[in-house]
Write a protein that binds this DNA or RNA. Sequence first.
DNA 1: AAGAACTGCAACCGCCGGCGT
DNA 2: CACGCCGGCGGTTGCAGTTCT
Length: 253
Amino acid sequence: MGRTPCCESRQGLKKGPWTPEEDKLLVDYVQANAPGNWRMLPKLAGLNRCGKSCRLRWTNYLRPDIKRGPFTPEEHKSILQLHAIVGNKWSMIAAQLPGRTDNEIKNYWNTNLKKQLRASAGAGCLAARHTAQWETARLEAEARLSMLSTSAATTSVTASSSSSTAAAGGEHGADAPSDVFLRLWNSEVGDTFRRKSAGRAAREGSAPREGAQLPAAAPLPPPGDDSSAASNVTTAVTTEEYQVFLEMAAEEL
DNA sequence: AAGAACTGCAACCGCCGGCGT
DNA sequence: CACGCCGGCGGTTGCAGTTCT
């Protein structure tokens, strides 16, 4: 007994691609009035669309902070690593890549995955084995993540780190992106990273990072911009360290 | 040049969880 | 506590543009 579709109440709503005029109406309205109620928005903005459609159009396409264009190698790498950690949690992955939307990442992944599958079919057993290994690792990651989420309830968490991700969007109670990384950070993966990190720092002669803090609730430093919360939180872990943490987490999981 | 096949992406759909009543 | 509303998420589809034959 699922909910009735949001558009059921208003027949004759327009579907399909958005016109520039509709985009303008939506942008003008959202910029003038913060989108409080998406359900009412179409009526108020003079759009013959379903509220859901408006929200999607805004979040995936019209938002001013959206970064368009091809994914950089760094982003590609982050997506691979994050996917190995959290699986198909596109919103979580998107939260770590400022300016990218979950839809975009999902599309990117799906097309990449298709390529990989095609490649494995064409290139024989080696690539196929890699694909299978990757899929196994992903499933294990998801299973592990779910275990982490159940045990996280007993884990103490610093207030500064847990309050910092709302701006990244997609926060969802216990499943907020920050929590995923908090869980990882507070898990044995985080422990291992901190130990290795401290050891490396000692070897390199710098002060050991005793009790290194969470990577500012984790978003990668946005290039140039800072709409994310990262800037107003103590960033105790550098980009490089964060990258190392991601790599390690992916390997560990 | 034309049709077929493929690709990438915007948009839709159905479900879920949080929240207010 | 149950219910309904709403926002958000992930999976899927449809179609325009591109490449191949």
